[in-house]
């Protein structure tokens, strides 16, 4: 018998919370992207846990697709970061204030 599913769910909730805190407080776009990865991994862990608990392979399939979308998201996000850095010489989100009302 493996470890109870609730332990993994609490672990993934903690991981998600760390990702949320980092995303809300960090200034660097690169670190914020890493925090998004942390949150995605927390959700992946939840899906795998429920796939095991409910004996349903659909949970693992969803994780597969989440990984694909995460790869695409990081590709586009880093492309935007590079484009912004070339123009503005910064990766700090505080200095990108053109759309400030």
């Amino acid at each position: 018998m493996s470890v109870p599913a609730s332990w993994y769910l609490v672990l993934s909730a903690v991981l998600f919370g760390i990702g949320v805190y980092g995303f809300l407080t960090k200034r660097s776009v690169l670190i914020m992207l890493m925090c998004v990865e942390l949150m995605l991994n927390a959700v992946n862990l939840t899906f795998v846990t429920f796939a095991r608990t409910l004996s349903d392979i659909a949970g693992q399939t969803v994780v597969f697709f989440v990984m694909v979308v995460a790869a695409a998201e990081v590709t586009v996000g880093l492309g935007i970061t590079v484009a912004v850095f070339r123009r503005r010489r910064t990766t700090s989100v505080d200095e990108l204030t053109e759309m400030q009302g």
Binding site: L54, D56, A58
Partner: peptide
């Protein structure tokens, strides 16, 4: 999290 086995809806069971 109570471990209800095969309460799956529509998916392929393990």
């Amino acid at each position: 999290v109570t471990g209800v086995m095969s309460a799956s809806t529509g998916g392929t069971p393990l």
